[in-house]
Design a protein around this nucleic acid. Structure first.
Lengths: 150, 150
DNA sequence: TATTGTTATACTCTATAACTATA
DNA sequence: TATAGTTATAGAGTATAACAATA
């Protein structure tokens, strides 16, 4: 079965992509004063507006205790603020500051530029083929994750 | 420029791949008693045989102090042992235990199986196209990382 | 009773700096 | 002097458990 070596070589490449992308994103976030753990929280706020910490903990798939720490850090660095919930006095609403919103807007632009850099050299046909392959890999991966655990 | 949206959608997919693959690998490692940080160290030992901590710190791109901690954890969980260096009494040689070697051998098999699961559904032609696309993305990414920093 | 977010505690990973034993 | 690996210290991120305030 001569395809077997090709497949492991492909997986090697995918893993290299994961590593390099992690480095690149890490650097970009650091430049903006964010970390890999805090960025998803801020992203969630940009996408859905002010959220309670409970909602954030559900969205990020982490514990409420952890969200407390992440929000603490983001408050200290000026990305978000804590405010009262209008109808539930137990809850706190986490909102983006102006600075946080600015950084996220810049990041969204950089994201588009980055996508163009990565894929701009491909023809439309090549890009379609690549995306289709990626889609089928993702399907298998989702199924694989569903099989074990959850 | 109608391709722009396709490109960001492709980057979205790549990032989802990164997340899902991270989850999957994390689970697999946990099943074997390893962590994401310790696995590369054990992998390095399997590839190149016993190494000094200095060599490991260079290979992993981390500090000597950090390697001390990682090796401590791997000794405690039975994956590696510390031994004297034959010619340099300052250095310690880190080696795989039988258990560590067994786990790594099993992991290498699982890696091949996983690659077959991920890419087995593609035709040879589709796989070639996907790998070529991945290669060009990696090239751009490497250049992007070289530009800023280092 | 149940939920929200906190404090208390602990563990992993990472880093810098000072130090010991060797080279 | 320089190198290998340690202790000391610090900070981020993650988790569980107990608890206070509120629902």
């Amino acid at each position: 079965m001569p395809g077997a070596r090709k497949r492991t070589a492909a997986l090697d490449q995918v893993l290299e992509l994961v590593v390099l992308l992690g480095e690149d994103m890490g650097r970009a976030l650091e430049r903006d004063g964010l970390t890999k753990s805090r960025a998803p929280l801020v992203w969630e706020l940009q996408q859905h507006g002010p959220r309670t910490q409970k909602a954030l903990s559900d969205a990020l798939g982490t514990t409420p205790r952890n969200v407390t720490g992440l929000v603490d850090g983001l408050v200290a660095t000026g990305f978000v603020t804590r405010g009262p919930h209008p109808s539930d006095r137990r809850a706190t609403l986490v909102s983006l500051t102006d600075h946080g919103a600015e950084v996220m807007a810049r990041m969204a632009e950089a994201y588009d530029d980055f996508a163009t850099q990565l894929f701009g050299g491909m023809t439309a046909r090549e890009l379609d083929g690549f995306v289709a392959g990626l889609g089928s890999v993702l399907d298998v991966l989702r199924q694989h994750l569903g099989d074990s655990g959850e």
